[in-house]
């Protein structure tokens, strides 16, 4: 079942097309990543589905509820773009306002503050917080009322490495507990590590969408192969020559005494190892890699930055 269906969403800012006929749906109980370079339209997209930005064309539907749009939002925990709080109020008072708007009890406040390690600072004013603490408070606010759907826009923004790891763990735990998480990020590694599904957006255009695993396994027409295998032997030149005889090996590139082979799905580590052994070559390294999301991302979006 789809939690959110987006149909032909378009947003124009004067001459700039921030979103161009984007359509996809977010399946229930997934971690759905919206991946794209800076300025690709991720925040605009989330802003539209949260009703703070009006679309120029197209529609969206949050499924599974017959309530009005704003009552539906009360049951979605959202962090959009930046942590937005009253600077002169304490962390706790800020969460009190959010909880009351959501129509939730205030019993949750202490719990969510503990989840993001901010409980000791609950009485400190928001403007005394560091960027990372502000971000964690925003995540705490999204967790109020234990919503089934969470929308995170760049959730690890401004966090230190330990904080990033904590939040990623938290997202994984939320996913395991059966929640749907929609997460925008420009960090490939983050999406690869955390998300089950991904939509790649570039300059407002949806490039591809699907489960992360499937996306990384899809062979690309121009390069052919989808497996990357790294091997080496004492005599790399002899190995290179021998590999010409093996069907399924598309390209061979030597990088720092290691041969990188792009192969079709037919090749496995075992086949390759047996082949070399039969040809009198003993491998001292064999590493079978799937194509990383980064490779796919660059294939899909091109190598140039949008900026």
């Amino acid at each position: 079942m789809a939690i959110l269906s987006i149909d032909n969403l378009t947003k124009n800012y004067k001459s700039v097309k921030a979103l161009d006929k984007v359509s996809f749906s977010v399946p229930s109980k997934t971690v759905f990543g919206i991946l794209g370079p800076n300025g690709s339209g991720k925040t605009t997209l989330l802003g539209i589905v949260m009703d703070v930005i009006n679309p120029s064309a197209g529609t969206y539907t949050w499924e599974g509820s017959h309530e009005s749009a704003h009552d539906r939002r009360k049951k979605i925990g959202t962090l959009l773009e930046t942590p937005n709080f009253y600077h002169y109020l304490s962390a706790e008072k800020n969460l009190m306002i959010a909880a009351r708007i959501k129509g939730r009890g205030e019993a949750d406040i202490a719990k969510v503050l503990k989840m993001v390690n901010l409980y000791e600072r609950k009485d400190s004013r928001f403007n005394t917080f560091s960027l990372g603490m502000k971000q964690r408070l925003a995540i705490a606010s999204a967790l109020l009322g234990d919503p089934d759907i969470l929308v995170f826009d760049e959730p690890t923004n401004g966090l230190d490495p330990a904080g990033i790891a904590e939040i990623r763990e938290l997202i994984k735990e939320l996913f395991k507990s059966g929640k749907t998480i929609i997460m925008a990020s420009h960090i490939l590694d983050e999406v690869e590590k955390v998300c089950t599904h991904v939509a790649i957006i570039q300059k407002g255009v949806l490039k591809t969408v699907g489960p992360v695993a499937e996306l990384m396994d899809t062979p690309e027409v121009d390069t052919g192969g989808s497996l990357l295998i790294e091997i080496s032997a004492t005599d790399n030149n002899g190995l290179k020559n021998a590999l010409k005889q093996l069907a399924g090996v598309e390209t061979v590139t030597e990088v720092e005494n290691t041969l990188q082979l792009v192969c079709t799905e037919k090749i496995t580590g075992e086949i390759l190892n047996r082949f070399c052994f039969d040809n009198g070559i003993v491998l001292n390294k064999l590493n079978v890699k799937r194509k990383s999301l980064e490779t796919r991302f660059l294939e899909i979006t091109g190598k140039q930055s949008d900026k």
Binding site: D51, H70, N84, F85, I101, K102, G103, S141
Partner: peptide, 21 residues
């Protein structure tokens, strides 16, 4: 203007107020 400055007008709506509310 504080609301706009802190972007809490967005947050209030994201959290579940309608724009008219």
């Amino acid at each position: 203007s504080n609301e706009f400055n802190y972007k809490t007008h967005r947050q209030n709506i994201i959290d579940g107020w309608s724009r008219f509310e």
